[in-house]
Design a protein around this nucleic acid. Structure first.
Lengths: 343, 343
DNA sequence: CTGAAAGCGCTTACAG
DNA sequence: CTGAAAGCGCTTACAG
């Protein structure tokens, strides 16, 4: 009841005229302890609302029961929903989650990764930032023995567990859908070249184009950074020349959203003048004007599987488990923004 | 470099043939230390990538530098954006943030609150769940000396710092806007009666109705819980009798979204058959079909101010500072869903 | 069955 | 200016 003081094992020991060792053992149901003593201790502990100090435990056992999560931006639907999945599993297994945002910068990502280490977190779940090209900060962590799981934006160079979706197939099907709807001049707006998802989605895109006997126009493949101005410029540039695309396939939610905004500003009608589809998990997609076709990802699953992999690693003594990659499926949602072309 | 072992002050002491006390003091720039010793220690520490173990520090100083945040649902735009604000301030001041979700249940909220305490977090920022009617878990925490700041869903009964928006005025202006647009049969869908925001928004709603000489129809004021089925039923019930509303003012994002969905299912056109406005911060509101009028809140600010209040409390020795309530403004966004009625 | 001791990594009042 | 000691709260190998 006295402010600022949590009851400790010592308080209980004193009250019961026992040693702290005995109290500790009684609390942990050690077999050596006499049943009466155990009862006595546990009852007083319950009465005093005793909870063991996790900080002391962490110090002793050299583990914090905290896992770090680094995502580009928490306010992004994909991220917040993935985090929800991570938290569900983590809390269920007695871990807490600390979330960091890289804000799509390499610098923040490195700082955050170091914090995971200096804060002695037990493991890291990360989706790389758009800017990241070197992975020293991650490999350092792994070499120090900290388990790492990557999801979504993973790095091929790193030998860790990974949770991804079938990006190539998802992009292929989305692109093929546009073609089947009558669009043939399809642009692809995407993010940094060196991210795994960029390459995979781009390959799926190209495969679909080629499969249907169309040719890939490299001018219509644009890599943007995460500055909205940069994305907007890329979109506008698509429409400056004589040869304009009649559809856009966007590789991430952020770009899809800018497309909606900029096409509206340019008075390019969706889908009449230009169809639109993209990877996007916003539950409101269905209610946009026009409703937005999208490739959606099993975000909750991605988070849950990532957390499971990570915690399994943390709790197994295996020094170097074989890296495992879990690939989950995507869903193609066909809506108005990619409606059949009529000319 | 050896796996699993972080370098400690002891390692440095041994390497330099100094005592740990000296190393500790050298690292903390204590004035007593000889400059040469300080240099020696700090250089070796830098070379070995020494970072002080925050867990040991926490144990010693009886503070964890972690603050807990309990929100109903992280995937909700309002929450994730508020959290972004909290994190920004917290990290800047050397704190980490652990996020908990109550999933709108009293039970989870209590569990989470106890975790904040048993995990020895330095403070709590909370928006109450829809179910919460008793506040014992919160007052217990406060009595134990843990600083608490409430935001959005605050409880009048609790004497703590609070960060809210001008809910009453926001609701008043939104309702008045509907009236000015020609709507006169306005329903109000809201959440649990015992939440502060519910009362304030309801009062603003009623004031506007009365100010314009209309009368409040209590049948059109419905309190929902957070089960989508319950919300859907409340919406449907509005349209069963002969006397149907011609506009809905919804008090929270979740309800606004269900309105969009259910009205569409019922083939009630927005705004022709029924206008819609609500408190909602989704950046996509503008691009919905029809675009959604809304009262938006300064979410980032709410988070920042909450974190500042909390950390100031944590770091001041003041045992019981005078509780302060910060009230921020809202913005009324007039869009198609509340377009002028023409009949 | 119970206790005293050592130790997790750190800080600081107390000696020297 | 530096070191030995105590202590934060806990656990466990070692005695008894």
């Amino acid at each position: 009841m006295s402010a600022q003081h949590n009851v400790t094992i010592k308080d209980i020991a004193k009250a019961l005229k026992l040693s702290v060792s005995t109290v500790s053992r009684a609390m942990r149901d050690r077999s050596e302890i006499r049943p009466e003593t155990r009862e006595l201790v546990q009852q007083l502990a319950a009465r005093l609302n005793y909870t063991p100090n996790p900080i002391a435990l962490s110090l002793k056992e050299k583990r914090s029961k905290v896992i770090g999560v680094i995502v580009p931006e928490i306010a992004n639907t994909f991220c917040s929903s993935t985090i929800a999945g991570i938290e569900e599993v983590a809390y269920g297994r007695g871990y807490h989650v600390t979330i960091f945002q890289s804000h799509e910068t390499y610098e923040r990502e490195v700082i955050n990764t170091r914090l995971v280490s200096s804060r002695r977190m037990d493991g890291l779940i990360i989706a790389m930032s758009n800017e990241t090209r070197q992975y020293g900060h991650i490999t350092d962590l792994i070499e120090k023995g900290t388990p790492v799981v990557m999801f979504d934006r993973v790095a091929d160079e790193i030998n860790s567990h990974k949770v991804v979706v079938n990006d190539k197939l998802g992009a292929f099907l989305a692109t093929e859908h546009l073609i089947e709807q009558g669009y043939s001049k399809i642009a692809h707006l995407t993010i940094s070249k060196n991210l795994s998802i960029t390459q995979n989605r781009l390959n799926g895109f190209k495969d679909a184009i080629r499969k249907h006997g169309l040719s890939v126009n490299e001018d219509w493949i644009r890599h943007c950074n995460f500055d909205p101005a940069d994305i907007d410029e890329a979109i506008r540039n698509l429409f400056t020349g004589n040869d304009k695309p009649d559809a856009i396939m966007a590789s991430v939610e952020r770009i899809v959203m800018r497309c909606i905004i900029v096409l509206k500003q340019m008075e390019v009608r969706i889908p009449e003048d230009c169809a639109l589809i993209g990877f996007s998990d916003n539950p409101l997609n269905e209610y946009l004007n026009p409703s937005l076709s999208s490739v959606s990802q099993p975000t909750l699953d991605i988070g849950q599987r990532s957390a499971e992999l990570l915690i399994n690693m943390i709790e197994s003594k295996a020094t170097s488990p074989v890296a495992e990659t879990i690939e989950l499926g995507t869903i193609l949602n066909k809506r108005e923004s990619s409606a059949m072309r009529h000319r």
